[in-house]
């Protein structure tokens, strides 16, 4: 019983982290048709910056703000200075963002070293919650809560605000949106910044659970890809659903069949692909 609750909780919390990444990846793709391979770098860089700030100041709140701010600025610069210059073809975009993934990963290795490091968790969340015979690690519940709040906020933002409506319009048809006076160029930068910020948030709240180390950028990127392949690019619903599915599969796969862990993720992906090449909620 405890095994199943704990593993489910682990899976759901990891799934929420994946959702934070996949939501940004998905929005960026939906609006700009850019497959951002550097998205895993945002996750890792957010955690590293937060780690340095918390070591210098001792404040987790300050660290979180600094980590998100630094990565958001990086995302804006990438979009404005580099991606904007490329034609809207998938290969140049993939190569450029892969180059940035390499550069950021290598420079992080240089700055923060090769040893895996863990972000501290807030005092208040370091204990476990007891509910009768069941014990819940409270930090995992916190991560699930953050993911749920972000999910609701994103949904309200997209469905209920003017800016969100503009983004939806631009995702549907950028040309028509432009013709009605929507500044798609500014919108693109804003969405890129939002995606980067979400990934950094994921890295920072995931830092105490998963740690941060060279290669984490690739690992999380690949899982985020599986999420958007399953859920479909450009769909928030798909990112949430895919994130939770992959989080649970990854956790139970590793716990039950350690040697076949990759299969438990990739086998369902292959089946979904065979049935729906654009994912469960995606449009071509």
């Amino acid at each position: 019983m405890t095994f199943w609750t704990i593993q489910t909780l682990n899976g759901l919390s990891f799934g929420m982290l994946l959702f934070l990444l996949a939501a940004g990846l998905s929005l960026i793709f939906g609006l700009m048709r850019i497959l951002n391979l550097a998205h895993g770098s945002y996750y890792v860089l957010g955690a590293y910056v937060a780690l340095s700030v918390v070591q210098a100041t001792g404040s987790l709140l300050l660290a979180t703000i600094a980590g998100i701010a630094a990565v958001t600025v990086l995302g804006i610069l990438m979009e404005r200075l580099l991606l904007r210059r490329l034609p809207t073809e998938e290969l140049p975009q993939a190569l450029l963002t892969f180059g940035l993934l390499l550069i950021i990963g290598d420079l992080s290795l240089w700055i923060w070293g090769g040893t895996p490091q863990t972000l501290p968790r807030p005092e208040a969340l370091s204990r476990s919650l007891r509910l009768g015979p069941l014990v819940f690690p409270s930090y995992r519940l916190f991560v699930i809560g953050v993911g749920a709040v972000v999910g609701v906020l994103l949904w309200v933002f997209q469905e209920r605000t003017r800016l969100g409506a503009m983004i939806r319009a631009a995702i549907d048809d950028a040309e028509i949106a432009r013709a009605t006076g929507i500044d798609v160029s500014k919108l693109s930068t804003a969405v890129f910044a939002l995606g980067a910020a979400l990934a950094a948030l994921g890295g920072i709240i995931g830092g105490p659970l998963l740690g941060v180390y060279p290669g984490a950028d690739f690992e999380i990127l690949l899982l985020a890809f599986v999420v958007v392949i399953i859920g479909g690019l450009g769909s928030l619903k798909g990112a949430l659903f895919g994130g939770l599915v992959v989080g649970l599969l990854d956790n139970f796969g590793k716990a039950l069949f350690p040697e076949l862990a990759m299969f438990t993720i990739f086998a369902p992906m292959a089946i979904i692909l065979a049935v729906r090449p654009t994912g469960l909620f995606g449009s071509p």
């Binding site: 890809f225 958007v228 990759m262 292959a270 692909l273 071509p284």
Partner: peptide
Amino acid sequence: AKGSYLLMITLALAQV
């Protein structure tokens, strides 16, 4: 698949 989906799917398959 085509385009970006093709990139992601070939990547995921190699990853298996």
